[in-house]
Structures are given as C-alpha cells and as structure tokens.
Design a protein around this nucleic acid. Structure first.
Length: 366
DNA sequence: GATAAGGAGTACA
DNA sequence: TGTACTCCTTATC
C-alpha cells in the first residue's frame, strides 16, 4: 500500500508505531494529498482518561500496524498511551470534498481493515472495540443500532475536524485580509496566500511562479499546471488550494448562521436539501446555487425567477462545484449539461421558448 | 471551438 | 430501478 504521512510530525508514526500524536487541523491540512484514502481511521476519544474531551483519535494502519492520532488544539504533542482501535475509515481528503457538513462516510468492515498488504484479521473485540457512545450499556448492539452509533460518533468527529480546518482558514483570512473564497482573490491576494502557505508549511518561495495569476486563474489550474510552475511543491500548493476552495464552498453553504457544522441537529432541521442526508439531485443543486446569488451569482443567476429561467454564466465553475459536491473530480460542463438534458424528458428542466446558450428553465419555478 | 442534443453503456445506491 | 456519469456523434451557433 502506498503510504504517506502528513508533513508535520506524523512521520513519527512510521518509526514509533505505538505512540499517540496530537495533530492540529493545521497539520491535517499540511499535506492532505499524502494520505491514502483508506489509511486513516477516525474515531472519537473513548475515555477522558486516555484522550482529552473534544479530542479525536485518528487511527491509521500501515502494514497492519494501527496508530492513534488525536486532534485537539493547535499544539502538537506526543505521548505513548493509546492503542489502536479499528472502526470507521474516513479519508482525510474526503473530509473536505464531501456533501456539505453531513460528509461522506465510508464504513468499513473488518475485512476492509485487513485488506491492505497485511491481511491479518482484525483483533478480537477486547483489543479492537467499537466506538463508545454515551448512554449505551455493555449490551451488544444490533447491527443496525451499532451502525447508527458509529455514524453518530463519527459525525461528532467530522464536525470537530472540519470546524478546526475552517477556523484555521478564517484566522488566515483575517491575518491576510483576504476572502475565504480563492476565486475572489486578486493577484495580490494570491501572493499573500502563497506567502502564508509557504511560511506555514515551510515550502520554498514560489511566489514569482504565480505572480501573474488572480484567484480565478489559480482555481482553474490543475495539479499538473501547479507542478509545471512549481516542480518543488506544486502538488502541495494545489492540495492546499483545494482545501480552501472546498472550505469556502462549505462555508458558503452553511452561511447565515443557519447551518453551524458543530450543531448537528440544526443541520438536519434545515430545509435545505443539502442537509437532508439524501443524495442531492442536480436540479436541486442548481436551485440552491440560484437561491444564493450573493455567493454564486457570478456563475449562475436568474434571468427570470418567476418563470424559472436561469443562465449558467460560468459553466466550468458550476461544473466544478457540482463535481465537488458529488465527489466527481472529472465533472465538466459537458457531463453536467447531459444530466440537465435528462431532465427534459422528466419535465423538471427544459430549454426556454427562446433558446439561448447556457440558459435553461425550471418547468415548475420555485 | 463551444455548446446543444441525444443515444448508449456503465456505476451505484 | 432510478439517477447520474461517461463517452460518443451530429448539429448548430
């Protein structure tokens, strides 16, 4: 299994297999692309004695060795107490590329844990307990209930992690006086962000390689483009930018204080389909974008709201947002428009009477 | 060249 | 099974 670690401190796990490492959200951000999607396990702290409250244990496996990481504040530390707990796999990368704050969770069975290069079966329950949940006794849970408990626990962990990441980004925005959404950056903002990222993650200075770019240009660049301009750390910068883009996306989705990621119940109660836990349909997604013109007016807007006629102003951007939402990095406007056209038959979306490029109409306006 | 339209196969929940 | 993704061809702007 290709195994890579976060730049900061996590390498120690490779050489100190039974240690607990405290990792800040900043550190999680330090190298998101270097974590294999199936090598990181997240689990809430099981007891106050082992891990501080509100901390999280990030468990990973490498060659069958399971490690425990802990996410608390921004101060890394080391101790050597906790042991491995198998349970729920969650890709660090997925944390920020999932369906809003409900996240995409992959629940892996024990077979998945053992499916790596070391096919050792999962240890017995004593060594390998499932996630604890307050209020639950020692009675064995039915499979369905157990899954609910796991899901619930994981949700808390996810909220915590994403909250930390957003906090770090917010702090950076204040410090740099830039907006959270990279698309809105001008050239100066891009240079500020580059300086900040270089400084924070000890990357070589590469500002010159990007000096002619604004945020929109930057966001349109692929990882290969980054690599071309900056062979030393282009991939890392691209990954960081992806995190910012995703965070901005999530932040906007949860704006207006309606949808705080730390308050799960509020998420569920929100009428917005993005928080319903159900897979979102493209037409719903488009409607959501249209209903937030302050955030997405640049890429999609109403031409006639009463009639449900809208125009996609920036097809590539809308496609990218949809791809992020559905975890489809290869999404483009060609594919998105094909999906839109599928709605013609279903009577959800149609072309307006006077057909225009990139203009569509909801058959049943909001 | 970009977009529109639609056929067809596939993946996934 | 429904929905969406993907790839494709052809037509139009």
């Amino acid at each position: 299994m290709e195994q890579a670690f976060l730049h900061t401190g996590l390498e120690s796990l490779a050489t100190h297999p039974h240690q607990t490492v405290t990792v800040s959200a900043q550190e999680v951000m330090a190298s998101p692309v270097r974590v294999h999607p199936d090598t990181v396990l997240l689990q809430p702290a099981r007891s106050a004695s082992s891990l501080p409250e509100n901390s999280l244990a990030v468990l990973k496996t490498e060659d069958g060795t399971v490690e425990t990481l802990e996410l608390v504040d921004n101060k890394p530390r080391l101790d050597s107490t906790d042991r491995a707990l198998p349970g729920l796999y969650l890709s660090c990368f997925d944390m920020l590329f999932t369906e809003d704050a409900t996240w995409l969770v992959r629940v892996a069975d024990s077979a998945s844990v053992a499916s790596g290069p070391n096919p050792e079966p999962c240890p017995e329950p004593e060594q390998c307990p499932v996630i604890d949940s307050p209020g639950l006794g020692t009675e064995p849970l039915s499979p369905g209930l157990e899954e609910q408990v796991e899901e619930r626990s994981l949700e808390q962990v996810q909220s915590l992690v994403v909250g930390e990441v957003l906090k770090d980004i917010e702090t950076a925005c204040k410090l740099l006086n830039i907006t959270p959404d990279p698309v809105e950056w001008n050239c100066g903002n891009v240079q500020k962000w580059l300086l900040w990222t270089e400084h924070l993650y000890r990357l070589p200075q590469v500002g010159k390689a990007f000096q002619d770019l604004d945020g929109k240009d930057l966001c349109a660049m692929t990882e290969e483009d980054f690599q071309q301009r900056c062979p030393q750390c282009g991939d890392t910068l691209h990954a960081h930018l992806d995190i910012w883009k995703s965070a901005a996306w999530m932040k906007e989705r949860c704006s207006l204080g309606e949808c705080r990621i730390t308050e799960r119940e509020e998420l569920w109660s929100e009428a917005d389909s993005s928080c319903s836990g159900q897979p979102i349909h493209l037409w719903q997604f488009l409607r959501e974008l249209l209903l937030k013109p302050h955030s997405y007016g640049r890429c999609i807007r109403w031409l006639n709201k009463e009639k449900g006629i809208f125009k996609i102003e920036d097809s590539a951007h809308v496609a990218r947002l949809w791809g992020l939402r559905k975890n489809r990095p290869a999404m483009n406007y060609d594919k998105l428009s094909r999906s839109i056209r599928q709605y013609y038959k279903k009577g959800i979306i149609r072309k307006p009477d006077v057909s225009q490029r990139l203009v569509y109409q909801f058959v049943h306006p909001v």
